[in-house]
Design a protein around this nucleic acid. Structure first.
Lengths: 244, 244
DNA sequence: TAAATAGTGTCTCTAAGACAGTATGAG
DNA sequence: CTCATACTGTCTTAGAGACACTATTTA
């Protein structure tokens, strides 16, 4: 039998059914606090419980595209090269045989970083959507294994800030060194020395590109800060060190 | 409708069929060269082409267990806490809609490190098995998207050696500092200064535990080296730096 | 003996941590 | 003016890279 005949005779329905879902761990920093976008599930299973946005992948759909689609459908948050989607990264596969009571489901979560966004609006499958501070999430009340997924996402985010310049994905296109420092402080949960942080970030080639203009100081004053955009470096050399 | 009724009425076969497979990127260091275990496919699709060991996950089977099972079935390499399986790590999910001509398949590859092992024997689904130096793999002739999977595995291994003590998983239970250095040199593909490497590895707390005995020198002589076991550190602090 | 490998010591340089001191805004 | 934030400079110290030197084996 050659390959063509083989494929013609192949019946996918002959095998026990699997499903593949995607979930989105969408993180942002609001008021100095690392927060995650959660929805309240509108249907069984886990109806009424909080969960990450997500859902079934369509047969002909790319995994990352499915994640972005479900995020938009459930929460109204759309991909947009400059803000949401500046950083989208796969978190792995979660496939415990009993993670979903309906059937065997393997879920592929995606980690997304976003700047502080307007309030999301509930859509299909969600009766409620909101940003929840990560430290305030009641992990043992999340649907499915989303506590583990969220934990993996936060841990990945913390590690990623050390050796990559993705922290800028939490900021608007133009930002100050202090904006960026507040991202690191929120994600790592530790205060950083503003002066050493300034020296490190502005001194690492390719991390920050000066815009040439200054920000306007907030209420209470302070010297205006220079504005920067993200540079083209893919890796930080040497890495930002997280205080131990 | 409550949750029980909902689940009773749920028909998994009503949805388009997905399949989930696992693949194994089994790496070792043989004669100073980073090598990967490849099989020749016995059946369509990609019959006769080289591929990573792997196969379909069973409905009630854990993903990592499936990877270990397929590795044993196809190649005879068995899990064994001290050698193969000293380090097993998920590499993510590969789910391009057309990566498999039979049907929609999402594959979850696992990265495994092993010490130099006895020659493997072909089993179910494989007509041939062998260790192939990673640099000698003809990536454009591998089955499916295994070139990308192998690339991700090698890149992950390189990064992992920097901040974790997993390099010891490439060695037998007791090993010398030079054995460990040869692992780093093979995986990173660069020579390292033996003296600085010695200072770094023996000076990092929790990395190496001295056994108290010496190795026997090879032919050609040389001073016997102290033997070590892997320590209990999970992370290297500070990290081993890969020469840029 | 020479050659090979193991292990120690020492110097230099980069860069991180801990600040002091200056600049420029708001109120 | 004071207060707040931005930015620059300086000192100390940990640790990486580049060696020289000593130790212990085989041939």
């Amino acid at each position: 039998m050659d390959e063509r005949e083989f494929l013609k005779a192949y019946d996918p329905h002959a095998f026990p059914p699997f499903a593949v879902t995607v979930d989105v761990v969408l993180l942002t920093v609001r008021e100095g606090v690392l927060s995650v976008l959660l929805v309240e599930r509108e249907t069984h299973p886990f109806r009424g419980r909080l969960a990450l946005p997500g859902g079934f992948v369509q047969v002909d759909e790319d995994l990352e595209a499915a994640a972005v689609r479900r995020l938009a459908q459930e929460t109204g948050v759309r991909r947009d090269g400059d803000s949401v989607g500046a950083h989208v990264e796969q978190l792995g596969a979660f496939g415990d045989p009993h993670r979903d009571p309906r059937m065997r489901v393997v879920s592929v979560p995606y980690l997304v970083f976003a700047p502080d966004l307007p309030a999301p609006t509930p859509g299909s499958g969600a009766s409620w959507v909101a940003w929840v501070p990560v430290r305030a999430v009641e992990t043992d009340r999340l649907a499915f294994d989303h506590a583990a997924v969220l934990g993996a996402g936060v841990e990945r985010a913390r590690a990623k800030l050390e050796y990559s310049p993705v922290a800028a994905a939490f900021c608007t296109e133009e930002f100050t060194v202090a904006d960026l420092r507040r991202v690191y402080e929120a994600v790592w949960g530790v205060p950083l020395d503003p002066r050493n942080f300034h020296r490190k970030t502005t001194g690492t080639p390719g991390f920050l590109v000066p815009v040439g203009r200054d920000s306007v100081p907030g209420p209470g004053g302070g010297r205006p800060a220079a504005l920067y955009r993200r540079g083209d470096a893919q890796l930080l050399h040497p890495a930002m060190l997280r205080p131990h």
